[in-house]
Every structure is written in structure tokens, then in C-alpha cells.
């Protein structure tokens, strides 16, 4: 199974990696339990920074598409196929849109929403 990244694409390289690995799982090109290359190997092969691949792997691990098993390496998660269809970005966008629509309906201005959103975000980071 081969993956290809476009270094001049507007889509960040880590997103291209995440999308292609998810697509490979969805299309059955890689199955649950299959091993993945190490971060360093993939970064070297694609001539990109280790941190970029590490970021893609972190996001895939968060979405339970892959799982790291210490020194044994990284593998496709047993529930990867089901988890691939969950798009957290789309889910966040949907819920935020609904919430913002409710605020606007109540008469809250966009500026007030932005300030409140930033405050809540900062509090959650701080706390």
C-alpha cells in the first residue's frame, strides 16, 4: 500500500497523511492489526519532518484509527474501520454552528460570541 503527499498542496501534509491512512482503512487496503512504518521511516521516505508524521499519527491515535504498542510499533486499531467514519472536525463544526445559531437568535452579537468563546477556551486551557 503506497501513500502520496503533494508538498505544494494547500492542505497541510499531516492532514493529507491522516486522510490517506483513513481512506486506506475504509477501502480495505490496510486491515486492523496491520503494522505501520515508524515515524522516522515514513518521514524519511516522504522527505518530510518527523514532527509532521508524528502529528498525523497523534491525530489518528486520538481518533482510534491506529494504536501505538510501545517498542513493538504502531498498528491499525481493531475498531479502525468504524472510527474512520467519525470526522471530529465535521462534528465540532456542526455543534458549533448550532450553538452559534442559538446565540444569534437570542440577540448576542458576533463580537460577544468571539470574546466569550476565547474566554471559555482560555479558561479550559488554564484550568
Amino acid at each position: 500500500m503506497e501513500i502520496t503527499v503533494d508538498i505544494e498542496s494547500a492542505t497541510p501534509m499531516f492532514s493529507q497523511l491522516v486522510r490517506q491512512i483513513k481512506q486506506a482503512v475504509e477501502h480495505g487496503k490496510i486491515a486492523p492489526g496491520d503494522p505501520l512504518p515508524s515515524i522516522r521511516q515514513l518521514a524519511n521516505d516522504l522527505e518530510m519532518n518527523n514532527k509532521t508524521v508524528a502529528k498525523a499519527y497523534r491525530l489518528l491515535e486520538r481518533d482510534s484509527v491506529i494504536q501505538a504498542k510501545g517498542y513493538r510499533g504502531t498498528f491499525i486499531h481493531p475498531d479502525a474501520l468504524a472510527n474512520c467514519t467519525v470526522d471530529l472536525n465535521a462534528w465540532v463544526t456542526k455543534h458549533l454552528s448550532e450553538t452559534i445559531a442559538t446565540f444569534r437568535k437570542a440577540g448576542v452579537t458576533d463580537s460577544e460570541i468571539r470574546i466569550a468563546f476565547a474566554d471559555v477556551l482560555n479558561q479550559s486551557i488554564g484550568g
Binding site: I3, I21, G73
Partner: peptide, 10 residues
């Protein structure tokens, strides 16, 4: 601009 890699450990 396109770089490819095999998605299997060596």
C-alpha cells in the same frame, strides 16, 4: 511535488 512511500514497516 509528489512524494510517495510504502505504508509498511521495514
Amino acid at each position: 511535488t509528489h512524494k510517495s512511500a510504502n505504508l509498511a514497516p521495514r
